[in-house]
């Protein structure tokens, strides 16, 4: 009986050794296969698969092959197609941002590196809002405020409200990069005087909202002011009523009100433009 138990233990141990050896051989075969193709590999998904295979088999390789695998890994890594992360969704939010190939992209390429970084985060916030991920967007905004302070908030607010479209309207065909940068600077520094962001919670105090609208109307350097709100349809209606009442009660004399209500994730986005000159 004792001999049978020893035989069983010996067989188990031999089986494990065989498995380890098989995996080692498989690992060597996989690494050899990658070595033969690495110079030609350019497709990101192929690079990803190869990197994953190296990571998977690395521990099983004999020491000499570990060195080869490590060199191979760095060759594939240097193709710059892969990010490794404890939380891949975080870098993805920024790396997947695109400005297209129009004027917004021209603007992006003209501003300082710091402003480019902020614009990337602002666009990411807008993308998240459009997917209904408002709290993810708020999370980015919190970091923007911490790092870039008031200026950073102005840039991301311009993007998430889409008020940057008015800046783009001011961009002329004849503009150089320097002109774009100057225009951007002007907008960012004066954005608080041009645009007002109203939060739904402020609507419970109508007098404060009225006061803010009148204040910004008095100090805008443009012939218009922009008012933005993100909330429910009722909130949008309430703000439009406040603005109309200001006109009726002769507390504000705008010549024309343009407004637009659109879907913004799970909320509604109200954008108002009050013009102060007859066009």
């Amino acid at each position: 009986m004792a001999n049978n138990n020893t035989d069983i233990e010996r067989k188990d141990s031999n089986n494990k050794l065989d498995n380890t050896k098989e995996q080692e051989i498989l690992g060597i075969q996989v690494i050899s296969s990658i070595v033969s193709k690495v110079e030609m590999v350019a497709d990101p998904s192929t690079i990803l698969s190869a990197i994953k295979e190296i990571i998977f088999f690395y521990r099983l390789l004999p020491e000499g092959w570990k060195r080869r695998a490590s060199d191979l890994f760095l060759k594939l890594w240097n193709k710059r197609k892969v990010i490794i992360s404890t939380d891949p969704e975080q870098p993805k939010k920024i790396y997947e941002v695109s400005f297209g190939d129009g004027k917004l992209d021209k603007l992006y390429k003209s501003v300082s590196k710091k402003d480019q970084a902020i614009m990337l985060q602002g666009k990411s916030m807008l993308d998240l809002i459009n997917k209904g991920l408002h709290s993810d967007s708020d999370e980015i905004k919190k970091y923007v405020e911490e790092r870039y302070h008031h200026r950073g908030l102005n840039v991301v607010d311009m993007m998430t409200t889409k008020d940057i479209e008015y800046l783009i309207e001011d961009m002329k065909e004849s503009f150089t990069s320097k002109d774009y940068k100057k225009l951007f600077e002007e907008w960012v520094s004066k954005y608080d005087s041009i645009a007002l962001l109203v939060s739904p919670s402020e609507l419970s105090n109508i007098n404060i909202v009225k006061s803010k609208i009148k204040e910004i109307s008095a100090k805008t350097p443009k012939d218009y002011v922009l008012i933005n709100l993100s909330g429910k349809m009722d909130d949008c209606a309430a703000l439009l009523t406040i603005i109309s009442n200001l006109k009726e009660e002769k507390e504000l004399n705008y010549s024309k009100m343009e407004h637009d209500i659109s879907d913004s994730g799970f909320c509604k986005s109200l954008r108002v433009k009050l013009l102060f000159k007859n066009n």
Partner: peptide, 29 residues
């Protein structure tokens, strides 16, 4: 070690903050 990313272009190790990714992208563009 429980909250980081490794970014392409010089294998930079960063904390998982949005500005880390954004600033890395622009510094290598």
């Amino acid at each position: 070690g429980n909250d980081f990313s490794i970014l392409p272009n010089s294998a930079t190790f960063v904390n998982n903050k949005p500005y880390c990714f954004a600033e890395h992208i622009v510094s290598h563009s």
